[in-house]
């Protein structure tokens, strides 16, 4: 198993004069499911298109399975891509969509038939062979697009926002489906998403990107529990992020005393990490809403707004009333700038 199955070295990607990705280095392990995560414009899609060969790098190299493919044309790279829009061929049946790539390889008809049927069965679409894409549901189209790429037995399967076009229920179903298919085929998958929960649930490793650079790389657990920067923390659901100055937390609005000595320039708390009902700090409840297992408060403080989730057992504090709270050291995440 190769640790550097897909290897991006000093990769610079640009559209005209705009540099989208400057000098990226990344290794993908064979057989893993890796997520490129980040907001739109962070370079994740650009990077994926470069791996596919749809975009020629300005400089740097791309190697797959030990072979430099930087100058290899997209149709010769042996890479699969499941498009966000699925990009199914509307004039062809489901069967012919999946057989499309095999036919180009001038394979014998019996083998085409066999592999296509197997591919369609793998994604659970047996019986739908004769349908046109337009006659299939969004989830079925997604599976068909997946099967079309998989029958080519690609070295790497790229997926562009694979779950974004599905409704909540199908999204869950497809998530399990993708993991199942990956287990079964062992194909290396790289998928692009802007949704952290999707990346956390699906990926073996997450590459968090910002402005074309890797902000943090790690397992879902590492990113969730130990975001390294303010950007990573915000992306992972730390809503209360403040700078540290001496013994105080400061923001553009003002400051609050910090109960302990901080060793990092910034600190962050999840809403669930803020203690409500007791503590040395004080604020006014400006919004309060019931959220099932807990109550979500927005508290106006000298620092600005602080978001806090209180266990449902604690006494409800009415709007406009003062509320005591604490930003405990045990729940604080230390961040670099």
């Amino acid at each position: 198993m190769s640790e550097k199955y897909v290897s991006l070295r000093n990769l610079t990607l640009s559209y005209g004069k705009t540099v989208a990705v400057p000098n990226l280095n990344l290794d993908v392990v064979e057989g893993e499911l890796i997520a490129l995560l980040g907001p739109s414009g962070c370079g994740k899609t650009t990077t994926m298109r470069a791996i596919a060969g749809l975009l020629t790098p300005t400089s740097g190299t791309i190697a797959i399975d030990g072979r430099d493919v930087t100058r290899v044309a997209a149709n010769k790279r042996g890479i699969g891509l499941v498009f966000q829009s699925y990009a199914l061929f509307p004039h062809l049946s489901a069967f012919e969509n999946v057989a499309f790539g095999l036919r180009l390889q001038k394979m014998p008809e019996t083998e085409i038939r066999q592999r296509t049927e197997a591919g369609i069965a793998t994604v659970g679409l047996a019986g739908f062979e004769k349908r046109k894409p337009a006659e299939m549901s969004g989830g079925q189209q997604q599976r068909l697009a997946l099967a079309r790429s998989l029958v080519m037995e690609p070295k790497v399967l790229l997926l562009d926002e694979p779950l974004s076009n599905l409704d909540a229920r199908l999204r869950l179903e497809m998530r399990t489906e993708l993991q199942r298919v990956q287990k079964k085929t062992g194909v290396t998958m790289v998928f692009v998403t802007h949704d952290q929960s999707e990346a956390l649930a699906l990926a073996d490793r997450i590459v968090l990107m910002k402005d074309g650079k890797i902000e943090q790389l790690g397992t879902p657990h590492q990113l969730y529990a130990e975001p390294a920067t303010a950007f990573a923390a915000e992306f992972m659901g730390f809503e209360n992020i403040f700078r540290v100055q001496g013994e105080n937390l400061v923001s553009d609005f003002g400051q609050l005393p910090l109960g302990f000595k901080a060793t990092s320039p910034m600190l962050a708390w999840r809403p669930s990490g803020v203690q409500v009902g007791q503590g040395p700090l004080n604020g006014r409840v400006s919004a309060s809403s019931f959220a099932g297992g807990h109550r979500e408060y927005v508290i106006d403080t000298a620092l600005g707004q602080i978001k806090a989730d209180a266990p449902i057992e604690t006494l409800e504090v009415p709007l406009g009333e003062n509320i005591a709270f604490d930003l405990p050291k045990s729940n604080a995440r230390q961040l670099s700038e």
Binding site: A52, A74, R77, G80, F83, S85, A87, L104
Partner: peptide, 13 residues
């Protein structure tokens, strides 16, 4: 959509 052509190219066209 032009991504249909890209899909075709990635399938070997």
């Amino acid at each position: 959509r032009s991504d249909m052509e890209e899909a075709a190219v990635l399938l070997g066209c």
